[in-house]
Design a binder for these strands. Structure first.
Length: 779
DNA sequence: GCCTGATTTCTACCA
DNA sequence: ACTGGTAGAAATCAGGCG
């Protein structure tokens, strides 16, 4: 019987050294289905040394068979490795969990140059070899069977033939569950060992909203209730915020305390932490929206409430925020408990709203890269590119390189010009359309086209990178060139189709998510090529790309000058020039003809202000908005007081061109600040802990604040943002830093905020106009 | 021991 | 746990000072 399904999750089981692949999906008719494939075997490749005989190596392997009894098959294979044809033996081994060990052992044989692909996880192997994409539709021949095990699924089938992808206009309708916990700890950050969960809030995309409350401090019943609720609703997708590192592990630990099995998956098991640190709920897609918070670059402190506020899902002004440590005071008081429950519901609504904004992208990224949607969020950018490339390589018979330990040597990157300081009228920022990918395509830069220095190749056959001298064959097209060309073409096609659709329509949204996913992978490829962890790492690739980039921007500036355009600034792939439409048009044309890359105006500024610093400027756009780049205003580690003042100063200067008025404003603000009129929250400074507290070499304000938090029971880890204020006292700054929630307005060192926050931020700009520190002293 | 300028450490940004 | 280039604050070091 033919089954059409949308792939939600995949896992595998090993029974008596024999693997089964389980594909969890949703049928077109909406039934939830499990497809079991018992026909697939894991394997790896042994690449033979030059001149080594396949039969001889087979003989070597045969002599080891008693040690490696699960070898099922040895098959010669003609493959490519970095574009070079190689002879290999494909070794099939029955048990996927032993594959890596077998691959290592056989890699040491005399006739073997390399053992490859033994590190590809079995479920990924299955997807790749069959061309199956998570979050996509497939057809398969399968027989329905009756399944009497504990699986929570409507239909179980045994697969007869490999599934193949098919096109369908839209995904099935999902059942989505959102959840959040309220843990209760009287000693700082709650610890699952001692502190119960007092509320579990859950909602479904069908409009149900429930809250389970603990009985006193006994959370056993609410865990049971949650268990039941999840099973009853049977979600396809589970969303949370911070659920991978926070809620799931906490809930599991609490369930463990009570000997309750948290059986919320579809296979009768429990959630478990798996690759890249995601929590896997078998048969469902567990998605932690926090893993997609990076998509919202404008939000500096990535809390759920800030992201929900940014998206307009739930405004900060309209909601309650209760810190973990304050939970007891709400929970214990009868009349305050409803506020705590309300806080839970608000978080839940935020989660559902953020899910609405982020899930399309997650699905598209998953189906582009080929990683299951529950892994894709936790996989770092480098691994996303890695898996994308693995798919592409497999498609063209390329062997997948392993990761290798290697030393790090830095190389020179993009070119940054010193700006012409001051105010400029009518300036255009021109930039190259995906410069690095375009260069990699144009120069055929790739690990497989690289010609090492000792190799003799006629100069006419290679492109030679400026400054660094690396050579790349012009033909045939390299791996990166092929891949990037396809990506760019795909994105162009998607965007073309979008233009025929109503923005806001279902398909438009889907395609927009698609093109964003393609863009993310395209833009990460250059950085990936220079990343030590990349399977296709080759320093000369990244180094040559950057060198050609510098040459490109230098040549472009020279052309601009020849045409009579004044260059004010430039950074990596952009130049800022005084705008003259005709000359700019001429420049684009010339660049296209002589360099072969596409360059166009990105933004036109009515007026733009540079200081002498690179990477920091502010422009006024025709619609009246300020475009602020690099300055304190858009940094997350300055007090709002300073950021706000700087933004206002920029506004006055660029819109009204009045340094006097700006200085007057600053004086007024400083007076107000000294009179304690600035809200406390505008004095908080946020900084990230980038390493464990005891690894810091110098004493720093945010680290000292973090230590205080830790003493009081806060659990802080790498990546956490610490909010602190500077309090009165003597000595070093770090001695005066206190967590914002452990200080009051009376403790604040207002002088610090005037002298080290507001004034420097304002003067950074106002100095350009001859305004001095004295001019900012209130009369 | 204190002052000062140079250097290091740290974070967050730009492309 | 994608790259290098950069600004800026604060801590810390190193040397001058009889």
């Amino acid at each position: 019987m033919k089954v059409t399904f949308w792939l939600l999750d995949i896992n595998y089981e090993v029974k008596d050294h024999s693997p089964e692949v389980w594909l969890w999906g949703i049928e077109e008719e909406g039934r939830r289905i499990l497809l079991v494939d018992r026909r697939f075997r894991p394997y790896f490749y042994l690449v033979l040394k030059e001149g080594a005989e396949s039969e001889a190596v087979k003989g070597e392997i045969d002599r080891m068979r008693q040690d490696l009894p699960l070898i099922e098959n040895l098959e010669p294979a003609s493959m490519k490795f970095f574009g070079r044809p190689v002879q290999a033996i494909r070794v099939t081994c029955g048990d996927p969990d032993l594959l890596a060990r077998y691959a290592d052992k056989l890699g040491k044989l005399t006739g073997v140059e390399a053992s490859l692909e033994g590190d590809i996880r079995f479920s990924m192997r299955y997807l790749i070899d069959n061309g199956i994409m998570p979050c996509g539709w497939h057809e398969v021949e399968a027989e329905e069977v009756t399944d009497d095990s504990v699986k929570q699924i409507e239909k179980v089938c045994i697969v007869d033939s490999p599934p193949r992808p098919v096109e369908r206009p839209q995904p099935p309708s999902f059942r989505i569950l959102g959840f959040t916990l309220t843990p209760y700890g009287r000693m700082g950050t709650p610890k699952p060992d001692s502190d119960p969960v007092v509320i579990i809030s859950a909602a479904t995309n069908e409009g149900d909203e429930v809250q389970f409350a603990a009985e006193g401090e006994n959370d056993a019943p609410l865990i049971e209730n949650f268990n039941e609720f999840v099973r009853g609703f049977d979600p396809d997708i589970i969303v949370g915020y911070g659920s991978n590192q926070g809620h799931w592990p906490y809930l599991l630990a609490r369930a463990g305390k009570h000997d309750i099995k948290l059986s919320v998956d579809r296979a009768g098991g429990e959630p478990h932490t798996s690759v890249y640190g995601h929590v896997s709920v078998t048969g469902r897609a567990n998605i932690d929206l926090y893993d997609f918070a990076d998509e919202f670059q404008d939000v500096k402190v990535k809390t759920l409430e800030n992201i929900a506020d940014f998206l307009g899902v739930m405004k900060l002004g309209d909601r309650t925020i209760i810190e973990d440590v304050d939970v007891p005071s709400y929970w214990e008081e009868k009349n305050r408990r409803p506020i705590l429950l309300k806080f839970g519901r608000e978080n839940l609504r935020s989660i559902m709203g953020v899910a609405d904004a982020a899930l399309d992208f997650a699905f598209q990224l998953s189906s582009l890269v080929g990683l299951p949607v529950d892994h894709i969020g936790t996989a770092a950018a480098g691994f996303r590119v890695d898996w994308f490339l693995i798919r592409q390589a497999h498609g063209v018979g390329e062997l997948i390189p392993g990761r290798r330990e290697q030393p790090y040597f830095p190389y020179e990157g993009g070119l940054v010009l010193t700006p012409k300081p001051g105010m400029h009228e009518n300036v255009a920022a021109l930039d190259f359309k995906s410069m690095y990918p375009s260069i990699m395509i144009a120069k055929n830069i790739s690990p497989d086209t690289y010609v090492p220095p000792q190799e003799d190749v006629p100069p006419s056959k290679v492109n030679v990178a400026p400054e660094v001298g690396h050579r790349f064959r012009k033909e045939p097209p390299g791996f990166y060139k092929e891949v990037l060309t396809r990506l760019i073409r795909t994105r162009d096609e998607v965007r073309k189709r979008m233009r025929t659709l109503e923005p806001g329509s279902f398909e438009y949204r889907l395609l927009d998510a698609r093109q964003r996913a393609v863009k993310v992978i395209t833009n990460a490829t250059y950085g990936y090529a220079g990343w030590l962890g990349a399977r296709w790492y080759l320093k000369p690739v990244a180094e040559a790309t950057a060198a050609w980039g510098r040459e490109t921007i230098r040549n472009t500036m020279e052309m601009a000058r020849q045409i009579g355009l004044e260059v004010i600034y430039g950074d990596t792939d952009s130049i800022f020039i005084v705008y003259d439409p005709e000359k700019v048009e001429a420049l684009s044309k010339k660049v296209q003809e002589e360099i072969g890359l596409e360059m166009k105006p990105d933004k036109i500024y009515t007026r733009i202000l540079f200081t002498e610093a690179k990477k920091r400027y502010c422009g006024l756009l025709p619609d009246g908005r300020l475009d602020i780049v690099g300055l304190e205003v858009i940094r997350g580690d300055w007090a709002n007081a300073a950021k706000g003042v700087q933004e206002t100063v920029l506004g006055i200067l660029l819109r009204e061109r009045s340094p006097e008025k700006a200085a007057e404003f600053v004086r007024g603000y400083v007076s107000g600040l000294r009179e304690r009129k600035v809200p406390y929250r505008d004095l908080i400074i946020w900084k990230t802990l980038t390493k464990p507290i005891d690894e810091y070499k110098v004493k720093a304000a945010h680290v000292e604040a973090a230590k205080i938090l830790k003493e009081r029971g806060w659990g802080l880890t790498i990546g956490d943002k610490v909010g602190f204020v500077i309090t009165k006292g003597s000595g070093k700054l770090y001695e005066k830093a206190k967590p914002y929630n452990f200080a009051t307005y009376d403790d604040i060192d207002l002088d610090y905020y005037v002298e080290n926050q507001v004034k420097p931020a304002a003067l950074r700009i106002l100095e350009q106009f001859g305004v001095t520190e004295n001019d900012l002293v209130p009369n």
